[in-house]
Design a protein around this nucleic acid. Sequence first.
DNA 1: TTTGACATGTAAGCCGTTACATGATTTA
DNA 2: TAAATCATGTAACGGCTTACATGTCAAA
Lengths: 187, 187
Amino acid sequence: MPGTLPVTAYVVLGLVSVRPTTGHDLAAFAERSIGQFFSLTRSHVYSELDRLCRLGLLDVTEVQQERFPTKRLYEITGDGAEALASWLDDSALRGERQRNLFLVRVFFGDRMSPARLEALLDSYEQATRARRDLLAATVERLSGRPQSTFRAATAMFGLAQAQASLDWVDQVRPLLLGARCADPDQC
Amino acid sequence: MPGTLPVTAYVVLGLVSVRPTTGHDLAAFAERSIGQFFSLTRSHVYSELDRLCRLGLLDVTEVQQERFPTKRLYEITGDGAEALASWLDDSALRGERQRNLFLVRVFFGDRMSPARLEALLDSYEQATRARRDLLAATVERLSGRPQSTFRAATAMFGLAQAQASLDWVDQVRPLLLGARCADPDQC
DNA sequence: TTTGACATGTAAGCCGTTACATGATTTA
DNA sequence: TAAATCATGTAACGGCTTACATGTCAAA
């Protein structure tokens, strides 16, 4: 029971546990499903699959195909399922404060020109609005499907965060742009 | 003008630009100020300060002290200020989708026992509530200080996110815990 | 004819974390 | 006497990303 595997290994293990897949397929599935809150490159997928096999947490079988190249089909083993379960049950989920580069820029906002600061807020708002609309559509699509409850919940989380971000932009824009104004005639 | 320095270098540069500091002091200041959305270890601070010096973006002077060890005081150079400004103005702020391990666990929630899932939500709610209260106090403290507008804005962002997270927990808890119930007598 | 889906990897390299290492001074 | 503040780093290591490398088949 190595509790010391990197997070990505457990994530890959979890994705394989949904259904047996190939590296190619898993990378695409990851992007579609957990892509909003966990990034995973194809390269990394392949190396993690390899490691998990060597550890006996996954089994692999080569499958010949007529029209496509031979593929390697991975499936979870008993040990793998156990390792996944114990990771999921591990209460030691620590802080994991995550970096937010947008906020870093806002923090240093007094070093930007007002025009540039406004552009920063505008582009953030635009990107966030797009994200919100995308997630709203996803929630719409998944709602009502009882088998997609957990997936829907993660989309709802993203939706709530995006909406809160947009509300925040509306709230702070006047404060931030007003704060920069050194010219009394403008204020 | 290397636009290719790691993000951490620019963050350190930005923090030094606030006022000349030592590595020790800067690490503490980083924790206090941007710690909520950017992590920075002491080790890393020292190595980045060193690099920025070698690149001519910072100047260092050794200062002897009576009661304390000699310290190295760093301050930003003209080139450094220029590099910082051009990084802040760089519109190519890309997606930077950040990992959220809590959401990963929720995504795999159907692999947990209902009791464990509930415990996960409870501990998340508790941690988030603590975070919200902390940030609310910070916002309270910074509000009204005109020189702290940008810093207050970042705290308000965290506060808005935390509140949205709490609302989300209330919203999805019944869905997630109800979804697991396979026993008709329990539902 | 070119794009896209299918399919699998290797190699290089920096970034960032954790652990290690040291030592004086003040305060509880 | 123990802990906290002040002060500076080195060493090791793995994680993760980027770029490189290859090839078939179907559809536009």
